[in-house]
């Protein structure tokens, strides 16, 4: 602990005397801020790391016996070493690294999800603002939103005659309901006081939308967007298993057909990590857009 302090003093020596006198202070301060920070990080990292270690050990123990139907982690790693270390390889056709499969899936999700976000906020605003629009649309939406995403796929395939737009449609229809419903609730719940402020100031509809309505409903809208991104990611994997082509869902299905269980496990881990990142990303955007007024 004391060594670094001596080090700094040595380095500082060539400087004028006054500065030398000022220097020693940062050392204890450094220790005072960095040590608790490290402790804080350790407190966050250690518990999940230990949990993970125990689970992996348990898995290894359970699956290393003779008749185990699933490979133990050690075998997964040796089986899929190429897959893990080089996610970027591309041997043409469908024989690509995981990165490319994930990228293809992400692209579909992004297109479908973006359309869902735009349409969802617009329709949500409409039914949040107008009692008649709500009475007309809400019962319909309440029924449609309970239809499982994959049930839309055959219909979409029939309508679009092609896999790609069908997958995007499934993402859209999955993500749109939480966005619509949460936006509508958010707009309906704008405190009457804010509306009165707008009325006293005589804000026009555009100013009202930008200055009051959207910021007031933003926490709700982002709740919807967050649920939506999670559901989209859930739906894409299932949809891709059915439509084929490059994509993580198809990769998993293909691995199953080739009995590459280890590949499936690695792919699942990637799917989980990407889903988690997507969720955090939307939360981060929400935090910035609502400027910290919401806790997500």
């Amino acid at each position: 602990m004391s060594l670094p302090a001596i080090d700094t003093e040595k380095k500082v020596r060539p400087f004028p005397k006054a500065k030398v006198l000022a220097m020693p202070a940062p050392a204890p301060q450094f220790a005072a801020t960095v040590v608790p920070m490290l402790r804080g990080i350790a407190e966050r990292i250690l518990p999940p790391a230990i949990t993970l270690l125990i689970l992996v050990a348990l898995w290894e123990f359970l699956c290393s016996g003779e008749g185990a139907s699933l490979p133990p982690p050690s075998q997964v790693v040796t089986d899929t070493w190429e897959l893990i270390t080089d996610p970027f390889y591309d041997r043409g056709g469908l024989d690509k690294g995981l990165f490319w499969h994930l990228l293809a899936s992400l692209q579909r999700v992004m297109v479908g999800y973006t359309i869902a976000a735009v349409v969802g906020v617009a329709v949500g605003t409409l039914i949040g603002q107008s009692t008649w629009a709500m009475r007309g649309l809400d019962p319909l939406f309440q029924v449609l939103r309970t239809v499982p995403p994959l049930a839309w796929l055959p219909l979409a395939l029939a309508a679009f005659q092609s896999g790609e737009p069908s997958a995007i449609f499934v993402i859209f229809i999955t993500a749109v309901w939480p966005v619509v419903i949460n936006t509508a609730v958010g707009i309906r719940n704008i405190p009457p006081d804010y509306v009165n402020v707008a009325r006293v100031l005589r804000l026009n509809p555009f100013e009202y939308a930008v200055k009051i309505m959207i910021p007031a409903a933003a926490p709700y809208i982002f709740t919807g967007l967050k649920i939506g991104i999670g559901l989209s990611w859930l739906a894409i994997v299932a949809a891709e298993m059915l439509i084929g082509g490059v994509g993580i869902g198809f990769f998993i299905w293909d691995a199953w057909n080739s009995s590459l269980i280890s590949d499936i496990i690695v792919a699942l881990i990637y799917v989980g990590i990407v889903g988690f990142i997507l969720d955090r990303l939307v939360a981060l955007i929400a935090h910035f857009v609502t400027r910290g007024t919401t806790t997500s």
């Binding site: 804010y194 200055k211 609502t290």
Partner: peptide, 19 residues
């Protein structure tokens, strides 16, 4: 006949815009 800034209101619960 309608609200306007010539009759400014201070509401019971301040009603500042939190964002």
């Amino acid at each position: 006949s309608d609200p306007g800034p010539d009759r400014a209101v201070v509401f019971q619960n301040h009603s500042l815009l939190p964002w």
